[in-house]
Design a protein around this nucleic acid. Sequence first.
DNA 1: ATGGTGGAACGTCCA
Length: 258
Amino acid sequence: MKFITWNINSIRARTEHLKALLSEKSPDVLCLQETKVRDEEFPVEIFEKAGYYVAFSGQKAYNGVAIASKFPFKGLKKDLFDTNGQKRTIEVAIENVTVINAYFPRGGERGSEKFFYKLEFFQKMKDYISKNHSVDELLLLCGDFNVARFENDVWDPELLRNEPGFMKEERDALERLIGIGLSDIFAELNPAAKHPFTWWDYRGGAFKRNHGMRIDYILSSHTLSEYAKECTAEREWRAKEKPSDHIPLVANFELSMI
DNA sequence: ATGGTGGAACGTCCA
């Protein structure tokens, strides 16, 4: 099973990139974040033409998540827990695999309302999974977590120590979530990768300077991570014309769905 | 503390 997660930063602004990703990479499952489109305007036809089923939960201008799959969904849930009306979570079952796709809040400076909203979101996700699932199931939690895990996951740990995305409180929240029995597939399979970033700010020539962060993850339950063979961050997608500020993260599992 | 760029939607928020 080939699995991709990508913060597309507007599905309508990235239509051509999306089509190219589907045809070139041909993932079995694709999770998207920041689709930024209402459900009634979601471009279902792109997926149908490419041979995918698709489920989505969006809103006007901000947030929005979607999951596309070559296999039909056996279950579908939106808004897994209270997020003040923001469309940030969606879950499907594909055969015997549960896929949770989430767009975690970016947060804000320490002590701000957004900072606490972000920390609460991590706690709620952890509680939701503990209550509704088990890490003994085949479970994938993926998306844009807006937190870098290790020092090697940011371009300048000292400079960013008190910035959103690398504060101790945020990293602790991510670690607690992973600690329920999930495995950070990219880190597990690429222990020697130097600065394996998944996001670069549009501002200040950040990509050219390689001022990035690893904030997108594919987390799998221990039962599923046994099958993980390969995980790659597709950096060239940030160098394209009109790119998203995030790149696709690809994971291959030696597991056939049918 | 501010500014840098991009998307949505058309003034200003969000990232």
